[in-house]
């Protein structure tokens, strides 16, 4: 669903990364000067499909994802999204770029005291003036889409429920609906299943996969569960110590590679 101007910009880029929806070049992040959490990440993401980023805790997966929409400020490197380097955008341009990048969080990050409908419509806040948003004067088109999306994720009956009255799986569905409400051209998911039970986890991954296919946006997902990554992702990126140590299809992800990513081997038995 990439719009015309973006496609035009991509077409004008002659290099190999031109076909990528997102291209990360030499990304470095230091929270404390001198200690690199991300030690020069370079990755291209195709405009379709799901990419799973796996790796041990504290290896910079969340930082990588948060650097892409600059919830975390990168220290060095480029993040080229639709022909523009996000790392160099000013505040206003960054906000405009963020409108096209949806995000799903580990602990859902719903605004607990707002209703489900209000939470979903948060995805349109980048387009609606603060005054209109405050008065809840969202365009009728957006409201209609929000209802459709809630039906899609199976929560049509919960539109007026307060977010804190929902179960974990339901909350994450609202979180996904909120992200898709942005009509994103890229979806970031930071450990979307880590707080959920195994069955709900599968359902959430399947939901993201389905929405990614129908709406045509690529998904980058951080995930701890290697089995889920194998099952749903078309490409797996393995990280350890702030570096990419594996990048390829799930079929080639064998025990040797898993040992390189996570270290040790006892846990594999």
């Amino acid at each position: 669903m990439s719009s015309l101007p973006a496609a035009a910009v991509e077409a004008s880029r002659p290099d190999a990364a031109a076909t990528a929806a997102l291209s990360v070049r030499g990304l470095v992040k230091e929270y404390v000067p001198g200690r690199q959490v991300l030690a020069g990440i370079t990755l291209d993401f195709a405009p379709r499909g799901m990419t799973a980023v796996i790796g041990p805790s504290g290896t910079g997966k969340s930082t990588l994802i948060r650097c892409i929409n600059r919830l975390v400020e990168p220290t060095a490197g480029e993040i080229v999204f639709e022909g523009r380097d996000l790392a160099r955008l000013g505040k206003r341009e960054l906000r405009a770029a963020r409108r096209h990048i949806g995000m799903v969080f580990q602990e859902y990050n719903l605004v607990e005291r707002l209703t489900v409908m209000e939470n979903v419509l948060c995805g349109r806040l980048g387009y609606v003036s603060p005054a209109k948003a405050w008065l809840r004067r969202f365009p009728a088109r957006d409201v209609a889409r929000a209802f459709e999306l809630l039906d899609t994720v199976g929560l049509g009956a919960f539109a007026q429920a307060r977010a804190d009255s929902l179960s974990g799986g339901q909350r994450q569905r609202v979180g996904i609906a909120r992200a898709v409400m942005q009509q994103p051209r890229l979806l970031l998911a930071d450990e979307p299943t880590s707080s959920l039970d195994p069955k709900t986890s599968v359902e959430i991954m399947a939901l993201m996969q389905a929405l990614s296919e129908t709406h045509g946006f690529p998904v980058i997902v951080n995930i701890h569960n290697v089995e889920l990554a194998r099952r749903f992702a078309g490409r797996i990126v393995g990280m350890t110590g702030g570096r990419v140590v594996y990048d390829g299809p799930p079929e080639r992800l064998d025990e040797t590679i898993l040992k390189t990513i996570y270290g040790g081997e006892d846990w594999l038995e």
């Binding site: 409108r99 990048i101 995000m103 605004v111 948060c122 349109r124 948003a133």
Partner: peptide, 18 residues
């Protein structure tokens, strides 16, 4: 919750209100 609303590209006053 602030982070999530900010990630949608909401202007500051909308982040405050929502």
């Amino acid at each position: 919750q602030v982070e999530a609303v900010r990630a949608s590209g909401a202007p500051f006053m909308s982040v405050v209100m929502f």
